[in-house]
Simulated assay, not measured.
Amino acid sequence: MNNEKLTYKLMKNNRGQLQNLTDHLNTVDVTNNIKFTHEEESNGAIPFLDTLITRKEDGSIQLVVYRKKTHTDQYLNFSSHHPLQHKLSVVRTLLDRCYNLVTETEDRDKEEEHVKQALGQCGYPDWTIKRVKTEILKRKNENKDKKKVKHTDRDNKSKGMVVIPYVKGLSEAVSRVFNKHRVATAMRPHQTLRNILVHPKDKQETTEKAEGCVHMMCGVDCGERAA
Protein backbone atom coordinates (compact mmCIF):
# COMPACT_ATOMS: atom_id res chain seq x y z
CA MET A 1 0.00 0.00 0.00
CA ASN A 2 1.51 3.32 -1.08
CA ASN A 3 1.67 6.42 1.12
CA GLU A 4 -1.29 8.16 -0.57
CA LYS A 5 -3.65 5.24 0.00
CA LEU A 6 -2.45 4.82 3.58
CA THR A 7 -2.95 8.51 4.30
CA TYR A 8 -6.46 8.42 2.77
CA LYS A 9 -7.38 5.38 4.84
CA LEU A 10 -6.14 6.96 8.08
CA MET A 11 -7.99 10.20 7.35
CA LYS A 12 -11.19 8.27 6.58
CA ASN A 13 -10.94 6.35 9.86
CA ASN A 14 -10.26 9.53 11.83
CA ARG A 15 -13.25 11.24 10.26
CA GLY A 16 -15.47 8.33 11.23
CA GLN A 17 -14.21 8.38 14.81
CA LEU A 18 -14.68 12.15 15.01
CA GLN A 19 -18.26 11.86 13.77
CA ASN A 20 -18.95 9.11 16.30
CA LEU A 21 -17.58 11.31 19.10
CA THR A 22 -19.71 14.23 17.97
CA ASP A 23 -22.82 12.08 17.84
CA HIS A 24 -22.09 10.73 21.32
CA LEU A 25 -21.65 14.21 22.79
CA ASN A 26 -24.98 15.27 21.33
CA THR A 27 -26.70 12.48 23.27
CA VAL A 28 -25.41 13.64 26.65
CA ASP A 29 -27.76 16.62 26.98
CA VAL A 30 -31.26 15.13 27.28
CA THR A 31 -32.84 18.57 26.88
CA ASN A 32 -31.29 18.86 23.41
CA ASN A 33 -30.37 22.49 24.11
CA ILE A 34 -26.63 22.00 23.53
CA LYS A 35 -25.41 20.91 20.12
CA PHE A 36 -21.81 19.99 19.30
CA THR A 37 -20.35 20.30 15.82
CA HIS A 38 -16.93 19.68 14.31
CA GLU A 39 -15.08 21.14 11.37
CA GLU A 40 -12.74 19.33 9.02
CA GLU A 41 -9.79 20.81 7.19
CA SER A 42 -10.15 21.83 3.57
CA ASN A 43 -7.15 21.89 1.22
CA GLY A 44 -4.87 21.31 4.18
CA ALA A 45 -6.23 24.30 6.13
CA ILE A 46 -8.64 24.73 9.01
CA PRO A 47 -9.75 27.87 10.90
CA PHE A 48 -9.12 27.98 14.63
CA LEU A 49 -10.21 31.02 16.64
CA ASP A 50 -8.66 34.07 14.90
CA THR A 51 -6.22 32.06 12.79
CA LEU A 52 -6.23 29.92 9.67
CA ILE A 53 -3.86 26.98 10.15
CA THR A 54 -2.36 25.52 6.98
CA ARG A 55 -0.23 22.36 6.78
CA LYS A 56 2.77 22.84 4.52
CA GLU A 57 4.46 20.09 2.50
CA ASP A 58 7.49 20.05 4.79
CA GLY A 59 5.29 19.33 7.82
CA SER A 60 5.42 22.84 9.28
CA ILE A 61 2.37 25.03 9.77
CA GLN A 62 1.52 28.45 8.41
CA LEU A 63 -0.64 30.87 10.39
CA VAL A 64 -2.58 33.81 9.00
CA VAL A 65 -5.36 35.93 10.48
CA TYR A 66 -8.76 34.37 9.80
CA ARG A 67 -11.89 36.41 9.11
CA LYS A 68 -15.33 35.04 8.39
CA LYS A 69 -16.98 35.86 5.09
CA THR A 70 -19.48 38.01 6.98
CA HIS A 71 -16.73 40.11 8.61
CA THR A 72 -17.23 43.81 7.75
CA ASP A 73 -14.02 45.39 9.13
CA GLN A 74 -16.09 47.80 11.20
CA TYR A 75 -14.29 49.07 14.28
CA LEU A 76 -14.62 51.97 16.71
CA ASN A 77 -14.89 55.05 14.49
CA PHE A 78 -12.16 57.61 15.02
CA SER A 79 -14.68 60.46 15.13
CA SER A 80 -16.66 58.87 17.96
CA HIS A 81 -16.74 60.45 21.42
CA HIS A 82 -14.14 58.20 23.07
CA PRO A 83 -10.73 58.85 24.62
CA LEU A 84 -7.78 58.71 22.25
CA GLN A 85 -6.28 55.75 24.14
CA HIS A 86 -9.42 53.72 23.39
CA LYS A 87 -8.98 54.34 19.67
CA LEU A 88 -5.26 53.61 19.78
CA SER A 89 -6.00 50.36 21.60
CA VAL A 90 -8.03 49.25 18.56
CA VAL A 91 -4.97 49.80 16.38
CA ARG A 92 -2.73 48.10 18.94
CA THR A 93 -4.95 45.02 19.16
CA LEU A 94 -4.99 44.50 15.39
CA LEU A 95 -1.26 45.10 14.93
CA ASP A 96 -0.32 42.92 17.91
CA ARG A 97 -2.35 40.09 16.39
CA CYS A 98 -0.61 40.64 13.08
CA TYR A 99 2.91 40.60 14.51
CA ASN A 100 2.40 37.80 17.04
CA LEU A 101 0.24 35.31 15.12
CA VAL A 102 1.19 35.53 11.46
CA THR A 103 4.22 33.34 10.76
CA GLU A 104 5.29 34.32 7.24
CA THR A 105 6.80 37.72 6.46
CA GLU A 106 4.82 38.10 3.23
CA ASP A 107 1.55 37.28 4.99
CA ARG A 108 2.44 39.68 7.78
CA ASP A 109 2.94 42.52 5.30
CA LYS A 110 -0.42 41.75 3.66
CA GLU A 111 -2.18 41.68 7.02
CA GLU A 112 -0.63 45.00 8.06
CA GLU A 113 -1.79 46.58 4.80
CA HIS A 114 -5.28 45.16 5.34
CA VAL A 115 -5.38 46.69 8.84
CA LYS A 116 -4.35 50.08 7.46
CA GLN A 117 -7.08 50.03 4.82
CA ALA A 118 -9.77 48.83 7.25
CA LEU A 119 -8.92 51.45 9.86
CA GLY A 120 -8.63 54.10 7.16
CA GLN A 121 -12.28 53.43 6.25
CA CYS A 122 -13.13 53.98 9.92
CA GLY A 123 -11.48 57.41 9.87
CA TYR A 124 -8.12 56.56 11.45
CA PRO A 125 -5.34 58.85 10.16
CA ASP A 126 -1.95 57.43 9.17
CA TRP A 127 -0.22 58.86 12.24
CA THR A 128 -2.21 56.55 14.53
CA ILE A 129 -0.84 53.47 12.74
CA LYS A 130 2.72 54.81 12.79
CA ARG A 131 2.49 55.81 16.45
CA VAL A 132 1.25 52.42 17.63
CA LYS A 133 3.71 50.54 15.41
CA THR A 134 6.58 52.56 16.88
CA GLU A 135 5.35 51.84 20.42
CA ILE A 136 5.15 48.10 19.71
CA LEU A 137 8.67 47.95 18.27
CA LYS A 138 10.00 50.03 21.16
CA ARG A 139 8.34 47.74 23.69
CA LYS A 140 9.88 44.66 22.05
CA ASN A 141 13.35 46.18 22.18
CA GLU A 142 12.88 47.16 25.81
CA ASN A 143 11.77 43.65 26.71
CA LYS A 144 14.91 42.21 25.16
CA ASP A 145 17.20 44.52 27.13
CA LYS A 146 15.06 44.63 30.23
CA LYS A 147 16.82 44.07 33.54
CA LYS A 148 15.12 43.37 36.82
CA VAL A 149 15.37 46.41 39.09
CA LYS A 150 13.90 46.45 42.57
CA HIS A 151 12.30 49.73 43.53
CA THR A 152 12.45 50.35 47.27
CA ASP A 153 11.21 53.92 47.15
CA ARG A 154 7.51 53.86 47.99
CA ASP A 155 7.04 57.36 46.61
CA ASN A 156 7.57 56.01 43.08
CA LYS A 157 4.70 53.56 43.36
CA SER A 158 1.24 54.26 42.04
CA LYS A 159 -1.28 55.39 44.63
CA GLY A 160 -4.22 53.70 42.94
CA MET A 161 -6.61 54.23 40.09
CA VAL A 162 -9.79 56.21 39.52
CA VAL A 163 -12.42 55.77 36.82
CA ILE A 164 -13.85 58.98 35.41
CA PRO A 165 -16.55 59.63 32.76
CA TYR A 166 -15.13 60.81 29.46
CA VAL A 167 -15.88 64.37 28.41
CA LYS A 168 -13.70 65.52 25.53
CA GLY A 169 -11.16 68.12 26.58
CA LEU A 170 -12.06 67.96 30.27
CA SER A 171 -11.22 64.35 31.11
CA GLU A 172 -7.74 64.65 29.59
CA ALA A 173 -6.99 67.66 31.81
CA VAL A 174 -8.28 65.85 34.91
CA SER A 175 -6.15 62.82 34.01
CA ARG A 176 -3.00 64.96 33.83
CA VAL A 177 -3.70 66.33 37.31
CA PHE A 178 -4.12 62.82 38.72
CA ASN A 179 -0.93 61.66 37.00
CA LYS A 180 1.06 64.36 38.80
CA HIS A 181 0.01 62.73 42.06
CA ARG A 182 0.80 59.22 40.73
CA VAL A 183 -2.87 58.26 40.47
CA ALA A 184 -3.73 56.30 37.33
CA THR A 185 -6.96 57.10 35.50
CA ALA A 186 -9.31 55.05 33.36
CA MET A 187 -12.04 56.65 31.30
CA ARG A 188 -15.46 55.30 30.40
CA PRO A 189 -18.08 56.69 28.01
CA HIS A 190 -20.29 59.26 29.70
CA GLN A 191 -23.30 58.28 27.62
CA THR A 192 -23.92 55.20 25.49
CA LEU A 193 -26.54 54.18 22.97
CA ARG A 194 -27.77 51.61 25.47
CA ASN A 195 -28.41 54.31 28.06
CA ILE A 196 -30.22 56.45 25.49
CA LEU A 197 -32.32 53.83 23.69
CA VAL A 198 -32.89 50.97 26.12
CA HIS A 199 -35.50 51.58 28.81
CA PRO A 200 -37.11 48.28 29.88
CA LYS A 201 -39.54 50.03 32.22
CA ASP A 202 -41.30 53.37 32.00
CA LYS A 203 -40.27 55.83 34.65
CA GLN A 204 -42.82 56.01 37.45
CA GLU A 205 -43.46 59.33 39.11
CA THR A 206 -43.28 59.54 42.89
CA THR A 207 -46.92 60.60 43.11
CA GLU A 208 -48.00 57.45 41.29
CA LYS A 209 -46.28 55.10 43.71
CA ALA A 210 -48.53 53.38 46.24
CA GLU A 211 -47.66 53.49 49.90
CA GLY A 212 -46.95 50.21 51.63
CA CYS A 213 -46.10 48.82 55.01
CA VAL A 214 -44.48 45.67 56.27
CA HIS A 215 -45.87 43.63 59.17
CA MET A 216 -43.84 41.14 61.15
CA MET A 217 -44.31 39.16 64.30
CA CYS A 218 -42.66 40.77 67.34
CA GLY A 219 -41.82 37.43 68.89
CA VAL A 220 -44.05 37.94 71.92
CA ASP A 221 -47.23 35.89 72.14
CA CYS A 222 -49.47 38.88 72.85
CA GLY A 223 -51.80 38.58 69.90
CA GLU A 224 -50.55 41.89 68.43
CA ARG A 225 -48.35 42.49 65.37
CA ALA A 226 -45.65 45.12 65.05
CA ALA A 227 -45.75 47.33 61.94
Score class of each variant (00 low, 15 high):
Asn3Gln: 07
Lys5Trp: 11
Lys5Phe: 11
Leu6His: 08
Thr7Val: 10
Leu10Phe: 09
Met11Phe: 11
Met11Arg: 13
Gly16Tyr: 10
Gln17Cys: 12
Leu18Glu: 08
Leu18Gln: 14
Asn20Pro: 11
Leu21Thr: 13
Thr22Phe: 15
Asp23Leu: 07
His24Tyr: 14
Leu25Asp: 04
Asn32Phe: 10
Ile34Thr: 15
Lys35Arg: 11
Phe36Ala: 11
Thr37Arg: 08
Ser42Thr: 13
Ser42Asp: 12
Phe48Asn: 05
Leu49Gln: 07
Leu49Tyr: 03
Asp50Met: 04
Leu52Tyr: 06
Ile53Trp: 15
Thr54Arg: 01
Glu57Met: 08
Asp58Tyr: 05
Gln62Phe: 12
Gln62Leu: 13
Leu63Cys: 14
Val64Thr: 15
Tyr66Asp: 03
Arg67Cys: 03
Lys69Cys: 06
Asp73Val: 07
Leu76Lys: 00
Asn77Cys: 10
Ser79Ile: 12
Ser79Asn: 08
Ser80Gly: 04
Ser80Tyr: 02
His81Gly: 00
His82Cys: 08
Gln85Asn: 15
His86Trp: 10
His86Phe: 14
Lys87His: 03
Leu88Cys: 08
Ser89Arg: 03
Val91Ala: 01
Arg92Phe: 03
Asp96Val: 12
Arg97Gln: 14
Arg97His: 14
Cys98Gln: 04
Glu104Ser: 13
Asp107Gln: 12
Asp107Val: 08
Asp107His: 15
Asp107Cys: 06
Arg108Tyr: 05
Asp109Arg: 12
Glu112Val: 07
Glu112Arg: 08
His114Asp: 10
Lys116Arg: 13
Ala118Glu: 02
Gln121Thr: 14
Gly123Tyr: 03
Asp126Gln: 06
Asp126Ala: 05
Lys133Thr: 10
Glu135Pro: 07
Leu137Trp: 09
Lys138Tyr: 05
Arg139Ile: 06
Asn141His: 07
Glu142Cys: 02
Asp145Leu: 12
His151Ile: 09
Thr152Ala: 10
Arg154Leu: 10
Arg154Met: 08
Met161Arg: 08
Val162Tyr: 00
Tyr166Ala: 01
Tyr166Cys: 00
Val167His: 00
Val167Ala: 01
Gly169Ala: 02
Ser171Arg: 00
Phe178Asp: 00
Phe178Thr: 01
Asn179His: 05
Asn179Asp: 11
Asn179Cys: 08
Lys180Asp: 02
Arg182Thr: 02
Arg182Pro: 03
Thr185Lys: 00
Thr185Phe: 00
Met187Thr: 00
Arg188Pro: 05
Pro189Val: 02
Thr192Gly: 03
Leu193Gln: 14
Val198Asn: 13
His199Gly: 07
Pro200Met: 05
Glu205Arg: 10
Thr206Asp: 13
Thr206Glu: 13
Thr207Ile: 12
Thr207Gln: 13
Thr207Met: 11
Glu208Lys: 08
Ala210Tyr: 11
Ala210Glu: 15
Gly212Arg: 09
Cys213Thr: 11
Val214Tyr: 10
Met216Leu: 06
Val220Tyr: 04
Glu224Phe: 09
